[in-house]
Simulated scan of single mutants.
Amino acid sequence: MRILLLSVISLFFAAVVSASAEMAPEYAKWGQIAMEETQKRYQAEIVDYKHVGRQNISPEKAEETFKLWLRKSDGTEFGVYVAIQFDPSSNAIRTIRFSETDR
């Protein structure tokens, strides 16, 4: 009985993990990279995050754009647009651009 219960629980958690991975939007991994690279560059708290959109430039080049809102340790806040250009067939990153904004 105990083995059966453990098997059922294992199958349940495997299904939950699989469903979570399937529910994540396609841009999620690029958003994670945008946040990591922004943290490295600005060393400020990320207080908000928005996926602006994806642009397919060519079969070998696409770009995901995000807007992050940052707060410095002195309390000042500002926005940063992060554009990640990559090869959609290999997911190899070509460039990451940052553009600051006060809105």
Rank of each mutant, 00 (worst) to 15 (best):
P25F: 10
P25S: 08
E26Y: 03
E26H: 02
Y27C: 05
A28D: 13
W30P: 03
I33Q: 12
A34N: 05
A34F: 05
T38K: 02
K40Q: 15
K40C: 06
R41I: 09
R41K: 15
Y42R: 02
Y42E: 09
Q43P: 00
Y49P: 02
K50V: 10
H51L: 12
H51P: 04
G53M: 12
G53T: 08
R54P: 01
Q55A: 06
P59T: 00
E63W: 02
K67A: 07
L68I: 05
L68C: 04
W69C: 04
W69G: 02
S73A: 08
S73R: 00
D74L: 10
D74M: 07
D74K: 00
D74T: 01
G75W: 08
T76A: 10
F78I: 10
G79P: 00
G79V: 06
V80G: 03
Y81I: 10
Y81N: 11
A83M: 08
D87E: 14
P88C: 07
S89I: 08
S90M: 11
S90P: 05
S90R: 01
I93F: 11
T95W: 05
I96P: 05
R97V: 09
R97I: 09
S99F: 11
S99W: 07
S99K: 14
T101H: 13
T101L: 15
T101S: 15
